[in-house]
Structures are given as structure tokens and as C-alpha cells.
Amino acid sequence: MAIDLQLTAEVTDFLLEEADLLDRRDWDSWLELYEEQCLFWIPAWEDDDVLCEDPDNEVSLIYLDDKNRLKDRVWRINSGLSSSLIRMPRMAHMVSNVRIKEASAERILVHAKFQANAYKLDEHRVDFFFGDYHYELLPKGDSFSIKTKKVIIRNDIIPRQLDFFSV
């Protein structure tokens, strides 16, 4: 398959921008990347190699099928009412292996790998999640918007907390 270098470069830059907004905790700009009718999904694992792919019958770690539910999580950080979010971890997201799986005028399907490193101030420890991003992007002006972000976490024992900013 011929590789569209221009599109791959534009998509990569978009993903790196999202990662940077998360690391800089610019939640409002991060939210702007998402469609109103979006899906943010982290499936749970059923067994060593079996991922839960049926969210209406199987458990997800996070399943938010409406931008308002993403806004809820941002609101929770800003509210000061959640003790787990008062001392936020210092994060650095690494995004790589960006590949366009399908591209049309309507949508672009993208796979990428990530490692999201966290330094936790309360616990004086470093944790990280790593795995895969599966995006459905929509063309929007000279950039994109996120219709779907599915995150497959491969190290799924969770040290205390997993939220949208952790992956």
C-alpha cells in the first residue's frame, strides 16, 4: 500500500498536539479536539489475550459516549472536590508507530502506540501505562477532530488511578 506521507505527517502532528495538551493540562483546548458525539473508550481485559470488545455486554474501564461525560471528568479536576486529583501527576506522553489504516474524505482511521509516564507526588513513585491508540478522526478545516479514541492498555493492573489523562 502506498503511504501518504503528507497525511501521515499531519495526523502524527495532531496526535502529538493532543499528547502535549494532556501533559500541559490544557483541558479546555484538549476538549476542543473532540466531536460533540464522540466516544472515549478503554476496554477491560477478560483473560491474558482476550479483550472485552462488546461494551454493551462486557465491562470497560472507561466508556464515555458523549462529550459531556468527558467534560464531567475535566470538571472533576477543576472542582477541587476530588482528593485523588488535587496533586496531579507530572505526565509525559510518548506517541509513536503512527499508521493510517484507512483514509477517505469522510474519515481517517489511525493506529498508534503510546507510553504515558506519570510521576506521582503523593506516592513518590513513577508509573506508566502503555499500549495502543485507535482513532477515528474527521477532517476539520486544515486539521482534524476526534470522533473515537479507543485505548488498549496492555499493562492493566492499575496503580490507584486511571483517568483520561493517564493514557
Partner: peptide, 26 residues
């Protein structure tokens, strides 16, 4: 479906409640 969405919303270390409990245990 309702049961699953409410479960994910509140419980577990990826929900909106349990991480706050765990922070208090710490």
C-alpha cells in the same frame, strides 16, 4: 447496558469514586 455504564462511572480505579477512596487510604 445501564448496569455497565453505572458500574464504570463510579467503581474501579478508572471510575469517578474509587480513586478518591484509595487516596484517603494512602
Amino acid at each position: 447496558k445501564r448496569r455497565l455504564r453505572q458500574y464504570e462511572d463510579f467503581y474501579g480505579a478508572s471510575g469517578l469514586a474509587t480513586p478518591d477512596d484509595l487516596t484517603e487510604f494512602d
